[in-house]
Design a protein around this nucleic acid. Structure first.
Lengths: 231, 231
DNA sequence: CGAATAGTGTCTGTGAGACAATATTTA
DNA sequence: TAAATATTGTCTCACAGACACTATTCG
């Protein structure tokens, strides 16, 4: 039998009931693609990059940052690596969304795509001519099934924000209820009543006693998120 | 470079910016494992199988049915194949739950495990000496991370049943509210008040006008599930 | 003082939980 | 008729939405 390159060494030790090893069966390439969401100028936005094809004379197309998973690496590790390499962002917490498995979804071959969501404050995203922050209400056509990934990601993030204050940590504590409400309005894409919002959020916030003196009117109290599960 | 066997043919056509093809990078094996849930004797149960190791003198261990994905096959296709081959069940609707990606989770090598949930009526599950239906409250130790998969699956199914009547179609319509309530009690693992349950479910049910004459007391009306999204 | 913003009082409607009453059948 | 089950009435509580009012600051 021909020699097999580029596969896990340990995979050659195990033999199944037919005497075959894992390496004797075809394996898919596995990619991770990440919808990196953030809020800029009160709008929920996603980080897009230009395809490499553009650099080689092909048509420029927008896509989500992604990469193929390496041996010995977790999916989250691959996501962090791709975000570092393609967007220059560090230290995030990727969340797995869905595996896209249509055998013909990638014209390069048999590729499973594991969609991820990650969230980061916009000020930690460096500007670049290969990447851009686009409001999710103004998405251009995306390559592969990346538009579906953005849909999954937005739905997941909105569910989080309906459940608790600043689930993704986009706000630096302590913050005012006004700032928190503006953030939620951006994420959810709808206006919220200040009094209803306050009453629904205060059980999950700890008042600091300090006041914010930013705006014109009466100073607002500053809050910190309460540890989830606490009374 | 050495010849590569057992990989997608098309994968050799595409070359990336470094001139490499997909086949030049190591790829993981991808397995699907399925928690096949059902209700027997008013208890939520899962289908377990004995590991092949047992047949070859190894220690007998319980696991979920699973298989490696084949080329050109979808994940759902692999799940259906594994359930047909290992449990003799046909015609289900697998639902993707989560990818388990710990590089050391499988001692045979680098294997990603895509956990799935599927649901079927117990009477369609043939008896076998290699498979068993075990109530989820009495699970034995499971191989790999299969105990986590069962947890994911149970949580997903319970969320479905909290949302709508018989989300998985375990009941043959038309059915009485009593039968539906017993089913929900089995899935959720808790008692439900008959009147509260009725009022929460009737908006999603269509009364047939027919009556059931099974039990002793006043006959119960028979209902069919309303198409989701309808008024 | 007046504008602006923060925060509270309170009314209303909705829906879940709970208990009680009524309805219809079989033994 | 008595027991069993189905179905409805209704009370209470909690909470979201909505509007109005009070509180505190800056210019």
């Amino acid at each position: 039998m021909s020699k097999v390159v580029g596969v896990a060494a340990e995979a050659t030790t195990y033999r199944d009931s037919s005497g075959r090893t894992l390496a004797d069966y075809p394996r898919p390439s596995v990619a991770v693609d990440t919808a990196l969401l953030t809020v800029t100028e009160d709008r929920l936005s996603v980080l897009l990059t230009l395809t490499e094809d553009a650099a080689r004379g092909g048509k420029a197309e927008w896509r989500l940052p992604g990469t193929f998973i390496h041996e010995g690496e977790t999916l989250a590790g691959a996501v962090l690596r791709s975000l570092r390499d393609k967007a220059g962002v560090e230290g995030l917490a990727p969340r797995q969304l869905h595996v896209f498995d249509d055998p013909s979804r990638d014209d390069r071959g048999w590729v499973l795509g594991v969609a991820h969501l990650d969230v980061v404050r916009a000020d930690r995203l460096p500007e670049s001519d290969r990447t851009r922050l686009i409001p999710i209400s103004e998405l251009p056509p995306l390559k592969y099934d990346h538009a579906s990934i953005v849909e999954f990601a937005v739905a997941a993030l909105r569910a989080d924000y309906r459940r608790m204050p600043d689930a993704a940590g986009l706000l630096e504590p302590p913050f005012t209820l006004r700032a928190l409400r503006h953030l939620h309005e951006a994420v959810l894409g709808e206006r919220l009543l200040p009094d209803t919002f306050r009453r629904s959020m205060t059980p999950m916030l700890i008042p600091t006693g300090e006041l914010s003196r930013d705006g014109r009117g009466r100073p607002a109290e500053l809050y910190r998120p309460r540890a989830p599960g606490a009374v």
